[in-house]
């Protein structure tokens, strides 16, 4: 199985560990992984601000990097960027190849859980601690990787399923388990006061529940929460989910 590996700009620049852990985990699982060297920005920030023209230009640049390359799947270690490809990415002509790309682009959680259906992790990683799971809003409500608390459907949680494969790891949640943490991409800069308040409310919730560790399939939420927690002096450590799944997370 050939997998294209698309590393979004903010992961590369701010938290490359998320990409490294994901890449290594996919290799350990015996896959043929190809880093898409020319890939970078997924066009979400542009779309988010309403600059459709720019988003469209970027999408036109991305399309030739991901279609017709013989990839069975394209894995993107970021929920928001995966959602950008899956749910938006309509600034380019919707050829059968583009449609196929949008169907087979996945974040690592979907890929490991739904495609590979893994039941054990290579190298038997262990993390004998309670970890709060934050399902990022885009992964949760747009990619539907868990039951959003708003929807009255059968409960499921793909991240939690995967995290339970880590030896000793106990999955928990904040009291307001899937309330938005306030990152929202450009929103965090546009409305720093409310975004900051949401972030403080979220990290205080973990703290009240006695968590020391937090993980998410969306690193952008983690970067926001980590820097807010540090600003108010809370001792919390945030990981991208594959850092735990690949045994790279250090307590």
């Amino acid at each position: 199985m050939k997998v294209g590996f698309f590393v979004p700009c903010y992961i590369d620049a701010i938290h490359p560990k998320a990409a490294i852990s994901t890449y290594e985990l996919l290799k350990k699982l015996g896959l043929d992984v190809e880093f898409i060297e020319r890939g970078a920005c997924c066009a979400l920030p542009e779309l988010d601000m309403g600059f459709l023209k720019h988003a469209c230009t970027l999408e036109k640049g991305i399309a030739p990097l991901v279609v017709d390359k013989g990839y069975d799947y394209v894995v993107v270690p970021s929920g928001i960027c995966t959602d950008q490809f899956r749910s938006h990415f309509d600034g380019v002509e919707q050829t059968p190849e583009v449609v196929q790309f949008r169907k087979t682009v996945m974040d690592p959680v979907e890929f490991l859980h739904d495609v590979l259906k893994i039941t054990e992790l290579p190298g038997k990683p262990s993390f004998p601690h309670r970890v709060a799971l934050h399902n990022g809003c885009h992964s949760l409500r747009y990619l539907l990787e868990a039951r959003p608390s708003e929807l009255m459907i059968k409960p499921f949680d793909k991240c939690a399923d995967l995290l339970r494969l880590v030896d000793g790891l106990e999955v928990g949640y904040a009291t307001r388990r899937d309330e938005c943490c306030g990152f929202g991409g450009t929103y965090a800069i546009w409305d720093a006061s409310c975004s900051g308040q949401q972030g403080r409310d979220k990290v205080s919730d973990y703290d009240r529940n006695g968590f020391k560790y937090v993980t998410s399939q969306d690193m952008s939420c983690m970067i926001h929460q980590q820097t807010v927690a540090r600003k108010i002096g809370l001792d919390l450590k945030m990981f991208y989910i594959t850092e735990l799944l690949n045994g790279d997370a250090q307590p």
């Binding site: 020319r38 890939g39 066009a43 990097l65």
Partner: peptide
């Protein structure tokens, strides 16, 4: 295209 990350980060910085 890697240059485009500048655009992404640009959009993040410049409302």
């Amino acid at each position: 295209l890697a240059k485009a990350e500048k655009v992404g980060l640009w959009a993040l910085r410049h409302i």
